[in-house]
């Protein structure tokens, strides 16, 4: 009987301009809701969700950051320990796409170099108001060596897929690291460090 209620723990941080739908994506994934009229996030928001992938329990700690400029300093401080970053933009807003290079610079500066970044174009339910073509986004993500996905938090399109794919990639990444480093858990997770408790559990 393990004391842990999970096999893997990953920290995922959502970033991107204000109003692109970061909070809605998280809500849709963790609670299955689409809160209409969601207010601007203050500072950071926190959600947790445990998913099962190939029989393994994966706990996802999701930190949803405020897009507003004034919270930039506190949100930056959360990048550092992230295992994955979801960089979000709004397909109906050219401006949010044009800011992406700036966000990439931030990532470069503050996040760990092993971080996995996913580019997400949200709000595909508003296809008729699309300003950023899929092709353009794909080209951009390829150039930056990022995984790309288009989602709709409102219609729940690709939201599950986004997080589950990410979890899969994080697991395989973690496994690789384990092989390379021969360490039980190379990821910064507070659970794994106290393994002595789990092994003494039966006496």
């Amino acid at each position: 009987m393990s004391m842990e209620d999970y096999d893997f723990l990953f920290k995922i941080v959502l970033i991107g301009n204000a109003g692109v739908g970061k909070t809605c994506l998280v809500r849709r994934f963790t609670q299955g809701l689409f809160p209409p009229g969601q207010g601007a996030t203050i500072g950071v928001d926190f959600m947790i969700k445990t998913v099962e992938i190939n029989g393994e329990k994966v706990k996802l700690q999701i930190w949803d950051t405020a897009g507003q400029e004034r919270f930039r300093s506190i949100t930056q401080s959360y990048y550092r320990s992230a295992n994955a970053l979801i960089l979000t933009y709004d397909i109906t807003c050219e401006e949010s796409f044009r800011c992406l290079p700036e966000w990439l610079r931030e990532i470069e500066q503050y996040a760990s170099n092993k971080v996995i970044t996913v580019l997400v174009g949200n709000k595909i339910d508003l296809a008729e108001r699309r300003e950023v073509s899929q092709q353009r986004a794909e080209e951009f993500s390829e150039a930056q060596d990022m995984y790309y996905l288009e989602t709709s938090a409102k219609e729940s399109d690709n939201v599950e897929k986004l997080f589950l794919d990410l979890a899969c990639r994080l697991i395989s990444e973690a496994r690789q690291n384990t092989l390379v480093n021969n360490v039980s858990s190379p990821l910064p997770g507070e659970g794994k460090s106290i393994s002595y408790l789990t092994c003494c559990n039966f006496n």
Partner: peptide, 17 residues
């Protein structure tokens, strides 16, 4: 002991909306 999570979470709570 690591307090990373606690610091992150408590800070987040400070910004509760």
């Amino acid at each position: 002991r690591s307090y990373d999570f606690f610091v992150s979470r408590f800070s987040e709570m400070c910004h509760s909306g």
